[in-house]
Structure formats: structure tokens, C-alpha cells
Design a protein around this nucleic acid. Structure first.
Lengths: 344, 344
DNA sequence: GTGAAAGCGCTAACAC
DNA sequence: GTGTTAGCGCTTTCAC
């Protein structure tokens, strides 16, 4: 494994020797710890620089922190996720922390081992985005290390929660469509494969709110849901299924932009026009949605702000906070050309 | 930092005690090392399971490997990247290895510290996708740990290279467009911000090949390049610039699908039709490109195969191979409805 | 304010 | 085939 000619990396001992001080002193300077004279600090800093010394994360991990924040995403295809990362990065800029990312995959099981991988690697803090695992499992992890969960509308004493107010977002879309005269409004939902956290997952909240709003408006009989996934393919398949039904919907609300894009494809393939025959709306307000030729009506939930919030909470927890915090951010509707009056 | 009530994690010593053997024995079982009797193996395995023991990556890192593969992406917005990860995952499935991902950002400098972060965390192998840093810098890293570089057409004795044959891909697009009668074909390129590896970066190869093909066909005077970035915004801005020029292009070849999507938006906003007034082509053949309402002509480079190849090479290197390997994969053209005959 | 020394969990010589 | 032991590079008491 070792490469030939591999140059030996300098250690804290090398720095200490070079600066003519003890390793303790170097360690203290490194950690900005109490009890170092300015002169000492300067000497050490100079030696560190000269030797190009960087601390070994693994060695640090044995006694202290790794200065690593682990982020778990279900996948990396949703263009909304990078926004969250931008927010986190903005928040931790200037600290020594580094973000590492892992993919949880489509099942609670693969996700669980991804979480283990992060725990085994001793991350100082953990962010789980839209996790599939049970709250029990998440709390188990949260007992081991500072944890923030983004997405599910959970409330736990063990971790912080940050979520978009999905119910409010769905209401915005639905009121918009209903205001345009639509009655046969269908929904494309994301099936929870793990089935672990059915009630509080954002996808469930979105689907349930859709149903509730339909009922509230006396449209209970018009409820039509295709349960696939929040992906292009999921949206495509779901829309094809919905379009094939007897009473064809006049509007389709996909639970995510990615699915809305697939929906647009299916509608197009069916020879129908948007929004003439069918209105289409999404959720996430991705960059793609804003492009002129797509012009998808969507719900904006400001991923960067979500990311900043999450980053801040994580740092606070790492610094010692243990009282749980819960944040909701309010989404807003961005109406574009993919939605219009219901056909008469 | 430590959470209250944090349960102490079991160690190799706990397992040894529980099984009534030495820590060495446990370690050997863990590593499938030589010299353990079946009986011993069984006892130890049982104890590991019972105690729910998992090795501490940090402690392992101090002496051996971390079973971690680091992957560096410039960003996570390009929908082509998850395909690569799928390939890597497929390849390392069944091994103990775990992939962690970091973002390099838009500059060679931020990328360089992302690389450092991975090195500091003792990953066993490193994959750099479309890196911005100089070859010198990459070789410096490759001397420290097993490295594979994906994207640039580099040749180095220190690391393995895997790349799409970008020249061939661009030729496919250009011949396609020229065959359709286009002469004023413009290109949207990605500017190398770090400027570090100008000549061999995939973006440079694509732009240079575009120019070469134009010249080869006697179209040197028609060469028109907008240098922005391989993003939606980059494509949008680039296309607006190109469309504003005196001799408006009849075709725009964007160096990446993401940029092509932005181009489509700009063309649409300008009131022009695709492909009636302007043909548009991209590169990467992302899922989005295949959707009916987008139907973007693009170059397919099979990210999953790229990922598998990269994963295999990395494992080989970790196992000890030091002779460099270089792979090219051949792209293919997927012609769709966004390209058509040049307007007469 | 400074340094000596113990020890984090694991692996790898080496002895038995 | 099995166990003892010496570190890996760092942080952290605890003397001075």
C-alpha cells in the first residue's frame, strides 16, 4: 500500500524538535489552548510553516476531535442538495472543520451502514438529510455524537431538527392550482422504501397535506396519487400512470422538481400541452426550474439558508450544547408558466 | 463534545476478553490474516457479533489502513457525477471499503485544501475527478497515496488515468452538425479558473477539438467561443453572448449538458426555435437530456463504466500495483430533436 | 508557562 | 497457532 519513495510526513515531534520546545507546547499552539507565551507561539508557528506540518487527523481522533463533519445524503442527484452544502460551507468557513459526504442509498439498511461508516471515522458532528432510518436509530447515533437532522418533521430530545414547512409549501401549490380552477389535481409521491419513518418524512407530509387540502376543498373524490420516487424516472412513470386513468387530471403536482421534469416529459410525449391541457408544479425550485424553456412553477425552500442553519446548530452542539433545537423555515411559491387556468 | 450518557464503544480488548483470547488473535481475525485456527476464528466472530464490535477507523489508521476511498469532485451539481459513484460502488461492493466524497470547489486553491483534507484523513486511495490542480501537485499527492485521476488526458508515472476520449466525442457532435449543413457553429467552453492544467483538462480538449474540426472543414472564420462555465448559468450567459453577435450561429455546441440547458433557455428567451433556428447539442448525456420535452442531442460517455474502471484501478493500486495504467473510453453520439438541418 | 509521560485502539514484530 | 509487547501521532493530566 505504501508508495515507494513515500516521503515521511512530519509530526508534532518534528515540529517540537525544530522549534526547540516540547510536543506539549506544539499541541497547545495547534489547539489555541491556554498557557503559551507569545514568544513560544511564534516560534512554533514558524516551525510549523517551515516544515509544512499538518496534523494527522487519525492521531487526533484517538484523543480529541477530528475536525470533520459528516453529511449524509440519500443520493446526489437532487440538485437541491448542493445548495445545502453551500450553506454549510458558508457557515463553517474560517473554522478548521472539513465536510465529508456519504451517500445513504435507497434503503434504510444501506443508509444505516453509511451512518456507521461516519461514526467509525469519528466525525465530530453528523448531519443527516432526509434520512430513511427510524427515529430510534437516529437517536442511537445522536447519543454517540452531535447530530442534526434535516428534512423529517421530527422532534427528538437527542438531536436538532431543521425542516422546511412542507405542509405550508404544499398548501401554497394547492391553493395556487385550485385558484386557477383545477379540481382534478393529481400528486406524484415518493415511496418510503425502508418504510421506517412513514409519518414524519417530508415525502409523507407532502402527500398527506395534498390529500388534506383536497378534502378541505371538497375534492376528496378527485384525489389521485402515483407513488414512485422523487426522480426523473419516477416522475415520468408516475405521470404516465396518472394520464392513463379514466378521469385525466388537469394538474399534476410532483413532490419534487426532479419528478416534475419527468412529468413534463410524459405529458409532452402524450401530445398534451403545458399548461393548456395540464398544469405541472414541482417542489425545491431548482435552477433548472427557473430556466425559460422549462419555467416550472415550484416551491422555494432556500437550501442555502437551511444549510447555514444546520451548520450553525452542528457547531453549537460540537461546542457542547445538549438542549435540542428545532427550526422550521417557511417556503414560498414561485409561479411560472407551467401552471395556468384549468381547461374549461 | 462528548454527549452525556455516551455509551463506551467496545474495543478489540473487550472482544479479546469476552472470547478469552489475545487482542492479536482478534486483530488477525478482523484482517483475515494468516495463522488463526477455525475454532479461534469462530469464537472471536461470535464475540464480535455479541458485543456489536466495529473497528475504530482512527486507531486502524495509525498502523494500517482506514478502508476508506476518498473521491474529489469539483462540485456536485453535474448530474453526471452520481453515475461515476454508482460505478465505483458497484466495483467495491463486497469489500470493506467505504467511499467518502469532498467538493473541490471552483478554484485550484480550494481544491488543493480539499485534497489535503483527504490526505490528512488517511484515505487508502484517492480519486480525483476533473481536478484543477497542476500535474505536479497531483503527482505530489500520488506519491503519498494510491491515486487515480479521472478526466484530464494526463499521462503520469505516479497515478492512473481514466478519461473519456473527449476529442472523439467532440468530433462526433461536430460531424453531426456539419453533416446537417451547419457552418456557423459556436461553442460554449468552461474557463479554467485555476489556469493550472490548461492543456490537458477535458474542457480544454473539448474546446481545442472544436476549433480543430472547424478549421479542418474550412470553417476557421466561423469559430466562435463563449468561455463561461459548465453550468446552467454559464450556458445561459454564453448563449446570450453568442446570440448577440453579428453573425448569429445556427448551432451551439455546449461542452456539457448543464450548459446546454442554459443555452436552450437563452435561445427560447430570444424567441428562436430549436432546432428550426438554432440547433443545440451538449455533452454527458444526462438523464435530463433524454426527457421528451428536452430531447437534447448529447455525447454519452457511460459514467458507470468510467466509475467501475476507476474503482478497479484504485483497488489494484491499494493492493500494491505501482505501474501506471491509462484508460480511454469511447463516447457515442445520441442524436435527438434539439439538432436539425441548418436553416437555409 | 513549560515539559515529561501516560494512553487512546489498533497492528505487526517477535517470542513462545 | 497463539500471546506479549512496542509503538503509530496526538492530547492531556500533572509535576515543576
Amino acid at each position: 500500500m505504501t508508495q515507494p519513495g513515500r516521503p515521511r510526513r512530519s509530526t508534532i515531534a518534528d515540529v517540537a524538535q525544530h522549534a526547540g520546545v516540547s510536543t506539549t507546547a506544539v499541541s497547545k499552539v495547534l489547539r489555541n489552548a491556554y498557557g503559551v507565551s507569545p514568544a513560544m507561539r511564534e516560534k512554533v508557528t514558524a516551525s510549523i510553516k517551515e516544515l509544512g506540518y499538518r496534523p494527522h487527523a487519525a492521531a487526533r481522533a484517538m484523543r480529541g476531535r477530528t475536525f470533520t463533519i459528516g453529511v449524509l445524503f440519500p443520493d446526489l442527484r437532487n440538485p437541491f442538495f448542493p445548495d445545502i452544502l453551500d450553506g454549510i460551507d458558508a457557515q463553517i468557513a474560517g473554522t478548521e472543520y472539513q465536510v465529508i459526504i456519504v451517500r445513504g442509498g435507497a434503503s434504510a439498511k444501506t443508509e444505516s451502514s453509511a451512518i456507521d461508516a461516519l461514526v467509525d471515522r469519528q466525525v465530530d458532528g453528523l448531519l443527516m438529510v432526509a434520512p430513511l432510518n427510524t427515529r430510534k436509530r437516529l437517536e442511537e447515533v445522536a447519543r454517540i455524537l452531535p447530530t442534526v437532522v434535516l428534512g423529517p418533521h421530527d422532534k427528538s430530545a437527542a438531536y436538532d431538527s431543521v425542516a422546511d414547512d412542507d405542509a405550508a409549501g404544499v398548501e401554497l401549490v394547492m391553493e395556487h392550482l385550485i385558484g386557477l380552477g383545477h379540481r382534478r389535481i393529481a400528486h406524484i409521491a415518493h415511496g418510503d422504501i425502508g418504510l421506517a419513518r412513514v409519518s414524519t418524512s417530508l415525502q409523507t407530509i407532502r402527500a398527506e397535506t395534498y390529500k388534506r387540502v383536497m378534502r378541505d376543498h371538497g375534492l376528496a373524490d378527485e384525489i389521485a396519487i402515483a407513488t414512485t420516487s422523487y426522480t426523473e424516472t419516477g416522475g415520468y412513470d408516475g405521470a404516465r400512470e396518472l394520464l392513463a386513468r379514466d378521469a385525466r387530471p388537469t394538474a399534476i403536482f410532483a413532490g419534487a422538481d426532479l419528478a416534475a421534469f419527468g412529468t413534463l416529459a410524459a405529458v409532452h410525449e402524450a401530445g398534451l400541452s403545458v399548461p393548456g391541457d395540464i398544469s405541472v408544479a414541482g417542489y425545491d425550485n431548482t435552477r433548472m426550474a427557473g430556466l425559460a424553456h422549462v419555467s416550472l412553477t415550484s416551491v422555494d425552500q432556500d437550501g442555502v439558508t437551511l444549510g447555514r442553519t444546520v451548520g450553525r446548530l452542528l457547531l453549537e452542539r460540537i461546542e457542547g450544547r445538549t438542549t435540542p433545537v428545532r427550526f422550521f423555515i417557511s417556503p414560498s411559491l414561485v409561479a411560472r408558466l407551467s401552471t395556468g387556468p384549468a381547461p374549461s
